[in-house]
């Protein structure tokens, strides 16, 4: 790793001020950032740790909405997001237990890894990502591979999920990394169906609109028989070709719908 300082502010205001300095970077759970630093793929002058800020911690449910502090670790979401079982289950299957004790929802969403699980939940549930300066709808937040609507120095303070009537997340796990080779998060609220796919596209998480249209008329796995996504823009690597991932999108969507129907 290159040399850098780490500061641990106890308030959001202090963190935002520290992030205003040149080449300062936010550090949440560090489960992606620290390996990146070890490979010398980043050279911050200063890391601003967010995990000591009490306001960014915790899970709260209010009516039909569940709100999670930006620096809340996956293990806490798995244990405390019981009012949105598909979300709790997703959090409880990220990485491994030790990783889940450090990695955070805000870190995952800010990084927007194309194979991460949380982007699928946020987009699939139509979450709102709140930062120190504004609220961003998930539909506007994800802007491609490792790219989000966040500005330089902007911090994810919380994520609010409207709890859907039915939901499920199913991932086909890459067994070494435990990231999603393909993961699909499906929600249904009244006639509104959302299908968010992670792990598959070169552009990162996306909504499969044809499947959403078919499922909003008939929320059953067979509703998407005959539908397919093109493999042309899919990630192709030694773990699976683009065509294979495109096939998995259909299979995982059917499984997610079946799971959501219980």
């Amino acid at each position: 790793m290159y040399a850098f300082d780490v500061v641990r502010p106890s308030s959001l205001d202090e963190a935002v001020a520290a992030l205003g300095e040149e080449d300062a970077q936010a550090l949440s759970g560090g489960q992606t950032l620290i390996p990146t630093l070890k490979q010398r793929l980043a050279m911050p002058s200063k890391l601003v740790s967010l995990t000591g800020i009490a306001d960014l911690q915790g899970v709260s449910a209010d009516g039909g909405t569940i709100t999670i502090g930006g620096a809340t670790p996956h293990a806490t979401v798995a244990a405390e997001a019981g009012s949105f079982p598909a979300l709790a289950q997703l959090a409880g299957n990220i990485g491994d237990p030790a990783v889940r004790n450090r990695g955070t929802i805000g870190g995952s969403l800010a990084n927007n890894d194309p194979s991460a699980c949380y982007p699928a939940a946020a987009l699939g549930a139509g979450a709102t990502i709140t930062t120190n300066s504004r609220a961003i709808a998930a539909d506007d937040y994800f802007q491609g591979l490792f790219t989000t609507a966040l500005d330089e120095g902007e911090v994810v303070t919380s994520v609010s999920f409207p709890v859907p009537e039915k939901a499920a997340y199913v991932k086909f796990e890459q067994p070494a990394s435990r990231f999603a080779l393909v993961g699909v998060f499906v929600t249904k609220s009244g006639g509104d169906v959302r299908v968010a796919v992670t792990g598959a596209s070169n552009d990162g998480v996306f909504r499969w609109s044809e499947a959403e249209a078919a499922l909003s008329g008939n929320f059953a796995p067979e509703a998407i028989d005959g539908l397919s996504v093109s493999g042309d823009d899919m990630i192709s690597d030694l773990h699976g070709s683009g065509a294979y991932r495109a096939h998995l999108v259909g299979v995982m969507t059917k499984r997610a719908v079946a799971a959501a129907n219980g």
Partner: peptide, 10 residues
């Protein structure tokens, strides 16, 4: 936690 993926100052 994995001590290889956390800084001492944390």
């Amino acid at each position: 936690v994995k001590a290889c993926t956390m800084f001492a100052v944390e």
